[in-house]
Design a protein around this nucleic acid. Sequence first.
DNA 1: GTTCTGGAACTATGG
DNA 2: CCCCATAGTTCCAGA
Length: 963
Amino acid sequence: MITTPQSLLPSSLASISHRVANLPSNSLSHNPGLSKPDFPENSCPGLSSSSNPGRDLGAPAGSMGAASCEDEELEFKLVFGEEKEAPPLGAGGLGEELDSEDAPPCCRLALGEPPPYGAAPIGIPRSPPPRPGMHSPPPRPAPSPGTWESQPARSVRLGGPGGGTGGAGGGRVLECPSIRITSISPTPEPPAALEDNPDAWGDGSPRDYPSPEGFGGYREAGGQGGGAFFSPSPGSSSLSSWSFFSDASDEAALYAACDEVESELNEAASRFGLGSPLPSPRASPRPWTPEDPWSLYGPSPGGRGPEDSWLLLSAPGPTPASPRPASPCGKRRYSSSGTPSSASPALSRRGSLGEEGSEPPPPPPLPLAHDPGSPGPFDYVGAPPAESIPQKTRRTSSEQTVALPRSEEPAPCNGKLPLGAEESVALPGGPRKEVAGMDYLAVPSPLAWSKARIGGHSPIFRTSALPPLDWPLPSQYEQLELRIEVQPRAHHRAHYETEGSRGAVKAAPGGHPIVKLLGYSEKPLTLQMFIGTADERNLRPHAFYQVHRITGKMVATASYEAVVSGTKVLEMTLLPENNMAANIDCAGILKLRNSDIELRKGETDIGRKNTRVRLVFRVHVPQGGGKVISVQAASVPIECSQRSAQELPQVEAYSPSACSVRGGEELVLTGSNFLPDSKVVFIERGPDGKLQWEEEATVNRLQSNEVTLTLTVPEYSNKRVSRPVQVYFYVSNGRRKRSPTQSFKFLPVICKEEPLPDSSLRGFPPASAPPFGTDMDFSPPRPPYPSYPHEDPAYETPYLSEGFSYGTPPLYPQTGPPPSYRPGLRMFPETRGTTGCAHPPPVSFLPRPFPSDPYGGRGSSFPLGLPFSPPAPFRPPLPASPPLEGPFPSQGDVHPLPAEGYNKVGPGYGPGEGAPEQEKSRGGYGSGFRDSVPIQGITLEEGGCGTGGCECECVQEIALHVC
DNA sequence: GTTCTGGAACTATGG
DNA sequence: CCCCATAGTTCCAGA
């Protein structure tokens, strides 16, 4: 680990680092798992961990890693130094509160100042950012009427010890709701230091790098970060951070334990003139130049400094050898965590802790290490010039990178940060981050924040106090509107730090997303972009994903990275000559290891299954008088996991679910991942499970798209069957890419017409036909679902399936109309379970979990006021992930509403059509499907299942097919 | 030689 | 405790 770096480091530091590394506890354990246990006992777990991990990880990563690694170490060392300083809360300049409004806002930006790169957009002040997960306190009204300013919970200036060398003057300011325990920190100075003393670093030693660390945030910075300092390795770090930092007491213990080390480090650091170690050593590989405004931000984004920085800390990663090193250690169990993706905010600790809070609490100081004025508008940390770091580093980046300190960062938004701004912060932040998050005491629950924010304040802020990233902002205000003209694709496989880039996010139509600011064209403005969440909660920076700057020949859009509160922000310029539009061809998505993030002190979100993100764009339009109007637009949800990306086709609903053995009817499938060459194959298996019949259906390509397949049901092999025949079909995108099978029935043809009473048709009298589930279609698994309330418009979406309600496929109007979305489609709820039916699941779809049958199992749904219709509309919790949602991009909308999605879906069907169709469907029902259905096949099934306990013969049915 | 990708092996987590 | 399924990460290989 130390090797190279050490060499670079002063002997003292080096020695220290070694020592650290060797510390018992630490164990450096690469193995996280190990470390964790040790922690308690060990004195300085964190340290140890830190040391290694990164390296290890890095190593594996690749050649590049080497460099990074080195850097990492350096940082590590540096960090230590800082820590020492930092720890004390107040250490250096702590105590000061910046926050005051006027405060110098770290955020302040110089509007108008051109960015370093090309067109100089107007600088945007950086807002204090809260950590991704965390919520920042709602902005408070600024002195000026009508304007808001972000407000840190409290700000504390960390000080750089005066050291300050850092210049930073001191320190960074942290906003802390609570008390900060860690030492970590804050040392913002580093950057400052750098700036101030460029010479010191000048040699290009690792130290020179700006502190990417700042970024450390993301991985935890805190944990790592801070922890990082303490524990480099992910695992360890996490552990350490976790264990140690989680409590103040723990931290204290740590500190004590590490005291010695810290002291030494500090000393060493001081000798070097590092004010604070923190600074971002990593930041950019290239020598840091004081003059470079960006330097302040930290490592260069371009280089991905940030990432690197993050990585460093975070990186603990596993070495190549061990695949999942990180997680093991301290991972928390998902189950325990409660909701996975954050489905429910409430659940998350954040609320209480501060997890989010954590982030928020310490809103990192924006870094402006440098003077705001000078550099540029962007206060953030990162944003260094692109050139700074080779992308390649990416891999290593992990190692290098420090996690961005998300929230941690001091949030001073207002306050200015010390320079190094985020980075510096970050670095320290890393540590800090954790600290920060953790440290802070209780923070208002996310919900609370949400409410506060949701209120709808005007998007007018002071340039000195821009809104945190987790602040909801309107996409439009007065004549201004930030619009995503071209939405990104619904899938984008994010890359890990250990991988190479997987490219920029692309648009569905090809090309890349395009964002445009309407209503303003006076001068260049900076467009910010970060990766936000896609869950039902308020939009906020995603804890497990970070934007990744893509550079290359093919990238035409200039951009640079910055780190705001631990969240990497990609900044681009909107030029009047381009109609204030930007082609987002420079934004990739980096996936952070769940274990790294989860271990962060304040992090409450769970990474597992939390793979959807949204691209969030922001623009701060200067209004004069030190005010800006901030508008934001978020893209459609983007699924970032490989799996989903290559995911198997999924059938979420289909209609009809049965037809005559003659086939020929049109069957519409809705789901996701359908391809132009997707095939739909019908099969029948014998009692022994052997394939008895197989037939590929003819797909109507013109009426099919990614989420809808329209096909013609093939003719069944035996047209003389006297009973309904249960068959199955699946969608295939190629070998190994088949959807789960769906059940379908072929009904015998009855020449004699048998009129059915309306009642029966519609509702199947309870007695005779169990409403729900019985339907054959559903295969076993599904519980009877209650129907979604038809009444509720909201549910009219695809999910609703009338068919479902009726339970019988035949009921669906089989008329031709497209299927677009027919009401008939039904969604299956999670199959398992609810009913009790043990059915094998022939139908295993239901991707989304539905609530169990509210109606006691019987619940099938009866939409139209059928006898059995559920009393109250039952609303499935689709929300989080509406089935369709992912795939369907609704243009322009930020929120993935199923409905919207659907609208878009049908190829032939224009957007918006969906609704109509649905209605039609309904209408059809209402009017009497009979009429609408020339040929009706009615199948009555009785299933024990429907009722509940059945064992399952679920299908006893009577099918009548009217000719 | 790099950057992108697509695939897939491995391992952890949960049921 | 074992088995299986699902998911997250890391690797590999080809374009």
